[in-house]
Amino acid sequence: MVKILCVEDEAALREDLVEVLEEEGYEVAVASNGSEGLRLLTDFNPDLILSDCLMPVMNGIDMLQAIRSGQPRFATTPVVFLSAHAQKEQVEKGVGLGAQHYLTKPVDYSELVKVLRSLLEARSREARGTPDEDSPAVRPPNERK
Protein backbone atom coordinates (compact mmCIF):
# COMPACT_ATOMS: atom_id res chain seq x y z
CA MET A 1 0.00 0.00 0.00
CA VAL A 2 1.17 3.46 -0.80
CA LYS A 3 2.16 5.36 2.28
CA ILE A 4 1.69 9.06 2.81
CA LEU A 5 3.06 11.07 5.70
CA CYS A 6 0.75 13.93 6.57
CA VAL A 7 2.19 16.84 8.56
CA GLU A 8 -0.35 19.46 9.71
CA ASP A 9 -0.68 21.31 13.04
CA GLU A 10 -4.37 22.21 12.83
CA ALA A 11 -6.29 19.21 14.20
CA ALA A 12 -9.54 19.77 12.29
CA LEU A 13 -7.69 19.95 8.98
CA ARG A 14 -5.55 16.97 9.88
CA GLU A 15 -8.59 14.83 10.51
CA ASP A 16 -10.08 15.78 7.15
CA LEU A 17 -6.88 15.00 5.33
CA VAL A 18 -6.58 11.59 6.96
CA GLU A 19 -10.18 10.82 5.97
CA VAL A 20 -9.65 11.88 2.37
CA LEU A 21 -6.38 10.01 2.00
CA GLU A 22 -7.66 6.83 3.60
CA GLU A 23 -10.69 6.96 1.34
CA GLU A 24 -8.30 6.88 -1.60
CA GLY A 25 -6.71 3.81 -0.17
CA TYR A 26 -3.50 5.28 1.11
CA GLU A 27 -1.92 4.37 4.38
CA VAL A 28 -1.55 7.54 6.39
CA ALA A 29 0.65 8.59 9.27
CA VAL A 30 0.25 11.99 10.89
CA ALA A 31 2.52 14.48 12.59
CA SER A 32 1.61 17.87 13.99
CA ASN A 33 4.88 19.65 13.27
CA GLY A 34 8.11 19.31 11.31
CA SER A 35 10.21 17.66 13.96
CA GLU A 36 7.52 15.08 14.67
CA GLY A 37 7.44 14.43 10.94
CA LEU A 38 11.18 13.79 10.89
CA ARG A 39 10.88 11.41 13.78
CA LEU A 40 8.27 9.33 11.92
CA LEU A 41 10.10 9.40 8.63
CA THR A 42 12.47 6.45 8.98
CA ASP A 43 10.02 4.08 10.60
CA PHE A 44 7.07 4.88 8.39
CA ASN A 45 9.05 5.15 5.16
CA PRO A 46 6.45 7.12 3.20
CA ASP A 47 6.17 7.25 -0.59
CA LEU A 48 4.99 10.84 -0.45
CA ILE A 49 4.93 13.64 2.08
CA LEU A 50 2.07 16.07 2.41
CA SER A 51 2.93 19.01 4.62
CA ASP A 52 1.71 22.34 5.92
CA CYS A 53 4.19 25.20 5.77
CA LEU A 54 3.68 27.25 8.90
CA MET A 55 3.87 25.09 12.03
CA PRO A 56 5.31 25.46 15.52
CA VAL A 57 8.60 23.89 16.60
CA MET A 58 9.72 23.25 13.00
CA ASN A 59 8.05 24.50 9.86
CA GLY A 60 7.54 22.65 6.58
CA ILE A 61 10.41 24.14 4.64
CA ASP A 62 12.96 23.39 7.35
CA MET A 63 11.64 19.88 7.59
CA LEU A 64 12.05 19.39 3.85
CA GLN A 65 15.62 20.68 4.06
CA ALA A 66 16.38 18.17 6.78
CA ILE A 67 14.76 15.37 4.80
CA ARG A 68 16.70 16.14 1.64
CA SER A 69 19.99 16.34 3.42
CA GLY A 70 19.31 13.22 5.47
CA GLN A 71 19.09 9.67 4.29
CA PRO A 72 19.52 9.26 0.55
CA ARG A 73 16.36 7.23 0.07
CA PHE A 74 14.30 10.32 0.88
CA ALA A 75 16.25 12.60 -1.40
CA THR A 76 13.67 12.25 -4.11
CA THR A 77 10.49 11.49 -2.20
CA PRO A 78 7.77 13.72 -3.66
CA VAL A 79 6.59 16.47 -1.35
CA VAL A 80 3.42 18.50 -1.61
CA PHE A 81 2.99 21.68 0.42
CA LEU A 82 -0.23 23.11 1.71
CA SER A 83 -0.03 26.72 2.64
CA ALA A 84 -2.35 29.45 3.89
CA HIS A 85 -0.66 31.88 1.56
CA ALA A 86 1.92 31.01 -1.04
CA GLN A 87 4.60 33.60 -0.64
CA LYS A 88 6.82 33.78 -3.64
CA GLU A 89 10.05 33.25 -1.75
CA GLN A 90 8.60 30.31 0.13
CA VAL A 91 7.53 28.72 -3.12
CA GLU A 92 10.91 29.28 -4.68
CA LYS A 93 12.69 27.84 -1.71
CA GLY A 94 10.40 24.84 -1.67
CA VAL A 95 10.88 24.18 -5.35
CA GLY A 96 14.59 24.55 -4.91
CA LEU A 97 14.48 21.81 -2.31
CA GLY A 98 12.55 19.56 -4.61
CA ALA A 99 8.94 20.17 -3.60
CA GLN A 100 6.70 18.91 -6.32
CA HIS A 101 3.61 20.94 -5.73
CA TYR A 102 2.03 23.79 -3.82
CA LEU A 103 -1.60 24.01 -2.85
CA THR A 104 -3.19 26.94 -1.07
CA LYS A 105 -5.72 26.59 1.69
CA PRO A 106 -8.61 26.12 1.65
CA VAL A 107 -7.60 22.97 -0.21
CA ASP A 108 -9.96 21.43 -2.72
CA TYR A 109 -9.71 17.80 -1.72
CA SER A 110 -10.57 16.38 -5.14
CA GLU A 111 -7.82 18.42 -6.69
CA LEU A 112 -5.47 17.25 -3.96
CA VAL A 113 -6.34 13.67 -4.74
CA LYS A 114 -5.68 14.21 -8.43
CA VAL A 115 -2.27 15.75 -7.74
CA LEU A 116 -1.29 12.94 -5.40
CA ARG A 117 -2.39 10.29 -7.86
CA SER A 118 -0.42 11.66 -10.73
CA LEU A 119 2.69 12.21 -8.63
CA LEU A 120 2.58 8.69 -7.23
CA GLU A 121 1.89 7.13 -10.60
CA ALA A 122 4.80 8.96 -12.14
CA ARG A 123 7.01 7.80 -9.36
CA SER A 124 6.00 4.17 -9.62
CA ARG A 125 6.46 4.26 -13.40
CA GLU A 126 9.95 5.54 -12.89
CA ALA A 127 10.66 2.92 -10.33
CA ARG A 128 9.68 0.37 -12.93
CA GLY A 129 11.91 2.09 -15.48
CA THR A 130 9.29 3.66 -17.78
CA PRO A 131 9.84 7.33 -18.37
CA ASP A 132 6.76 9.52 -18.32
CA GLU A 133 6.60 12.89 -20.03
CA ASP A 134 3.53 14.04 -18.20
CA SER A 135 5.04 14.13 -14.78
CA PRO A 136 4.06 17.45 -13.27
CA ALA A 137 7.39 18.73 -12.10
CA VAL A 138 11.05 18.03 -11.59
CA ARG A 139 12.04 14.62 -12.76
CA PRO A 140 13.94 12.84 -10.01
CA PRO A 141 16.90 10.63 -10.95
CA ASN A 142 16.46 6.89 -11.35
CA GLU A 143 16.37 4.88 -8.20
CA ARG A 144 15.88 1.27 -7.41
CA LYS A 145 13.05 0.69 -5.03
Binding site: E10, H85, K105
Partner: peptide
Protein backbone atom coordinates in the same frame (compact mmCIF):
# COMPACT_ATOMS: atom_id res chain seq x y z
CA UNK B 1 -8.50 34.02 8.88
CA UNK B 2 -7.62 31.47 6.30
CA UNK B 3 -7.29 28.68 8.81
CA UNK B 4 -10.88 28.68 10.09
CA UNK B 5 -12.04 29.32 6.53
CA UNK B 6 -10.08 26.28 5.42
CA UNK B 7 -11.61 24.26 8.23
CA UNK B 8 -15.13 25.31 7.22
CA UNK B 9 -14.47 24.64 3.55
CA UNK B 10 -12.91 21.29 4.34
CA UNK B 11 -15.86 20.27 6.53
Amino acid sequence: FRTPVAIIDGA
